[in-house]
């Protein structure tokens, strides 16, 4: 009888504990979601893409943040735009940018610009449509070129340059792709013309008849007596191998470095 009551009591305790844990978890997620929502400054109603600014290192003034956000809004036609600043981080800057973007938006189209104050570098990650237009090489090159600006404290302008360039790239992507196809077509045509020229050159010029072919058509006669070989003289030329030459030089004068 006492045992039955104990088990019942323990069961209820377990249920209460589980409830508390669930409650805490949900409130944590809610807190995180709420925190995330704090950093989302804009959401494009048409595309669903967002402007996300997380100035952990507090490099932006209010005015800077507004201006930057306005610029980033234009990118939301094509993908998410994220600005992130950090004092220091153990990863590479670009690795850090990639990890955080994937954590936030997964494989959605977008761009994340991170300013790492500790390393005094910018890191850029882009994917999807923005990634196709604003590729890894261009990102690296741009980030490297802005290093001095970041070192001098021009954080907001540096970020603006990156977002502006990304926007130009994605808006000009169609033009770039068309030009690329046109270029491929012209290169293919030039290659075809050169290949055809080689074929024409080989087939359209008279071929030279060799002397042996000319001789085959003649009436010929050849005879010779057995050759007599007469020895004349022997010529001896001293010509040591390269290694032997060096050794001989060393033997003659080991301290003379001029020969080397």
């Amino acid at each position: 009888m006492a045992d039955k009551c104990t088990y019942r009591l323990l069961g209820w305790l377990g249920r209460i504990l589980l409830g508390i844990v669930l409650l805490l978890n949900m409130s944590g997620k809610a807190a995180y979601a709420a925190e995330e929502a704090d950093h989302v400054l804009y959401r494009n109603e048409t595309t669903g893409y967002e402007v996300y600014v997380y100035d952990q290192a507090q490099v932006l003034s209010e005015l800077d943040a507004e201006r930057l956000a306005e610029q980033m809004k234009e990118l939301t036609q094509y993908g998410n735009a994220v600005f992130w600043s950090v004092q220091d981080n153990p990863l590479s800057v670009s690795g850090y940018a990639e990890a955080h973007y994937l954590n936030l938006y997964g494989d959605e189209s977008g761009i994340l610009v991170v300013l790492d104050l500790g390393k005094e570098r910018a890191g850029v990650y882009s994917t999807g449509r923005i990634g196709r237009a604003f590729g890894a090489r261009e990102r690296e090159r741009l980030a490297s070129s802005l290093r001095r600006s970041i070192k001098n404290g021009s954080y907001a302008p540096s970020a603006q340059v990156i977002f502006s360039r990304a926007l130009s790239a994605v808006e000009g992507e169609f033009m770039a792709r068309v030009t690329k196809y046109a270029c491929n077509a012209l290169i293919a045509l030039i290659l075809a013309m050169l290949i055809n020229f080689v074929a024409v050159n080989l087939s359209s010029r008279p071929q030279w008849t060799s002397d042996s072919e000319l001789l085959e058509a003649t009436l010929s006669y050849f005879d010779n007596t057995e050759p007599e070989v007469e020895f004349v003289t022997t010529v001896d030329h001293y010509k040591p191998n390269t290694g032997v030459q060096v050794l001989e030089q060393l033997n003659k004068n080991p301290f003379d470095m001029r020969r080397f």
């Binding site: 010779n224 007599e228 004349v232």
Partner: peptide, 22 residues
């Protein structure tokens, strides 16, 4: 060894040759 030895010869022969039609 470290020597290039060249033996020189003269080779003599009697030739009879004719090519007609070049």
């Amino acid at each position: 060894g470290n020597h290039d030895v060249t033996q020189l010869y003269n080779i003599r022969t009697n030739l009879q040759a004719k090519y007609t039609g070049l």
